[in-house]
Amino acid sequence: MSSNWQTRFADLIAGNHSDTGDPVDAGAQLRIVDDEGNEVFLQALARNSVFLRVSNSPKSGFGGQLIWDDPSVLMRRSDYYAYNGDKYGVSPDKKKASGLTRDPLTIATHGASNNEIMFRDGIDLLGAEAPSRIVCHQAHQRTALLESFKARGITHLGGKPVEDVVKTQH
């Protein structure tokens, strides 16, 4: 497994889900569906959920960012829950789930830097739930990610050419 995020992201899409090689180690599921909605690939990525954070503006840094310009792409689902702070993914059915919300208007106001939204059973990163943008910090990172996608035969994310989705911050 590689340590740079572009290769790691492409590895996830290609089916390499954990450094140990054990798919149960890795987390949520990567689910790929065709244009008619038929599942063509399913692989474990996380035990139960994919974790995301709400932010009004992208953070600067050296890693990549997946950005949904229209949060309703994900919020139309019914399997998410959120906290305005890190609860380490406490499930809604646990006693320690205080502060949990499923209200998208409340979630939109979450301002804690460690807020979390959990989506059960994965996110379709290639299809209908694909991010609007994948922002790379530098041009060489964008090039590496596009090359990784090309090597794996990934040409579109959410119906858009990968070149239009993968952007450079600087």
Rank of each mutant, 00 (worst) to 15 (best):
A108D: 03
A26Q: 05
S78K: 14
A130R: 08
D25S: 07
K95Q: 06
A139M: 10
R133E: 14
V162C: 07
F119Y: 14
Q169H: 13
Y88H: 12
L105E: 15
G21S: 11
A26E: 05
S3T: 11
A130K: 07
A10S: 15
T7P: 01
L105W: 04
D164L: 05
V165E: 07
H140R: 12
G153K: 02
E129W: 05
L100Q: 07
T20K: 07
R120K: 13
H156K: 15
G127R: 13
R77G: 08
Y83C: 02
M75E: 05
M1F: 13
R31L: 08
G61A: 13
F62S: 14
A139R: 09
W68A: 07
N48V: 08
R102F: 00
L157P: 01
K94N: 11
G15T: 04
I67E: 10
G153E: 11
N38A: 10
R76L: 02
N84E: 08
S3I: 01
V90K: 15
D70I: 09
R102D: 01
S60G: 14
L100K: 14
V40Q: 10
F9T: 04
G158P: 03
S60V: 06
K94L: 02
L12V: 03
G61K: 10
R8W: 07
H140P: 00
D35F: 07
N38K: 11
G27W: 13
R31A: 13
W68K: 04
Q169K: 09
G89N: 05
E129R: 06
Y81E: 05
L105A: 15
I107W: 06
V165F: 04
G122R: 02
G99I: 02
G122Q: 04
Q6V: 02
R152W: 01
N16C: 01
D34I: 04
I154A: 10
L157R: 02
T143V: 08
G127P: 00
F62K: 15
A128N: 12
R102Q: 10
D164I: 01
D11F: 03
L52G: 06
G21D: 08
D79A: 12
T20I: 02
S91H: 12
V33L: 06
G21C: 03
D124G: 06
S49V: 12
S18E: 02
N114M: 03
P23R: 14
K95Y: 07
G63N: 13
A26C: 06
S57N: 08
S3Y: 10
P58D: 09
G85Y: 12
M118T: 03
L145S: 13
D11Y: 06
F41D: 00
T155E: 15
M75R: 14
P131Q: 11
R142G: 05
L66H: 10
K94I: 00
